[in-house]
Design a protein around this nucleic acid. Structure first.
Length: 277
DNA sequence: GTCCGGTGGT
DNA sequence: ACCACCGGAC
């Protein structure tokens, strides 16, 4: 098992040296920049994240600059990325960070809203050089296939130290991401050109994820509502109903969900506007 | 386990 | 039409 792990690291890092992708954020250790790109890239195709990252870092070079801005401004820049909760949590985090720096909360980055196990370790590895694994969907998939285990998280809990031994964690984490994106892809992996192929267990888990239709979903209405609100400072519920053509029940569900997420406010007179806090 | 958006690949 | 995308909150 130790040999298999060593070969994984050798072959993966060798592949990475020749094939790694170049992104604008990979040259920085600045925790704010790392944090920004990690929040932006959650569940988002990485090539699109790059454009947004450049916009955000230009507009908000520091946490303070974002904290002094408004949620609406952040949502405007965010428009098109989806999962608007991320923008709200990012804005909340900037306020916390303008009071307490990254260095002062290190390593407890999970106190920031929107930061879970993955993002915490991404900041630790990419900004602080700590020897930790940023466990994302790529790493889990590669571990599952290569070692032939159903529960990659559990496997990594036990063996992360042997994976990290004698390697730069930043290189290793990015190597897994690039490799998972370019070779060991979720659909149609390129096993024929894979440098890990001889050692790989080639275990393809049959566990299916469940998907809900997007068309007609609450998510779709939420997105439309928020987009409209970015153009009109405030809007009445009647106007919203007319413009979106959704049934009242479905619209109300979306509105109350957005209000619960503190993205908008429904006033007494049924006037709706983006939350200003 | 479900919800949270928008886009591109197949 | 289906699936995945450098996850997290509930």
């Amino acid at each position: 098992m130790e040999i298999k792990t060593r070969k994984l690291k050798q072959n993966l890092l060798s592949w990475y040296r020749k094939n790694k992708r170049t992104f604008s954020w990979r040259n920085t250790n600045n925790p704010w920049k790392i944090f920004l790109v990690e929040i932006i890239s959650q569940q988002t195709q990485i090539n699109r994240a790059d454009d947004y990252y450049k916009k955000f870092i230009k507009e908000f070079p520091t946490p303070e600059s974002m904290a002094r801005s408004s949620l609406k401004k952040v949502l405007e820049l965010w428009s098109g990325l989806g999962y608007n909760n991320r923008a709200k949590r990012l804005y909340e985090s900037s306020k916390i960070l303008s009071e307490s720096s990254f260095d002062s909360i290190n390593p407890n980055f999970e106190i920031l809203p929107g930061v879970g196990p993955y993002t915490k370790n991404a900041i630790l590895s990419f900004a602080y050089g700590d020897s930790v694994l940023a466990i994302d969907t790529n790493l889990e998939r590669i571990i599952t296939r290569y070692f032939g285990v159903d529960d990659a998280k559990d496997y990594l809990k036990r063996y992360s130290q042997s994976l990290l031994k004698k390697v730069n964690s930043k290189d290793l984490n990015q190597a897994f991401m690039d490799f998972g994106s370019m070779v060991c892809t979720s659909l149609n992996p390129s096993c024929d050109i894979c440098p890990l192929e001889t050692e790989c267990s080639k275990y393809f888990s049959k566990i299916k994820k469940s998907y809900q239709k997007f068309e007609g979903s609450n998510r779709e209405i939420r997105g439309k509502v928020l987009k409209l609100l970015l153009n009109e400072d405030q809007i009445s519920k009647e106007e919203l109903t007319n413009k979106l053509g959704e049934e009242e029940g479905k619209l109300n569900k979306a509105l109350h969900g957005l209000q619960k997420d503190n993205l908008l406010i429904i006033k007494k007179n049924n006037i709706i506007e983006i939350n200003s806090k």
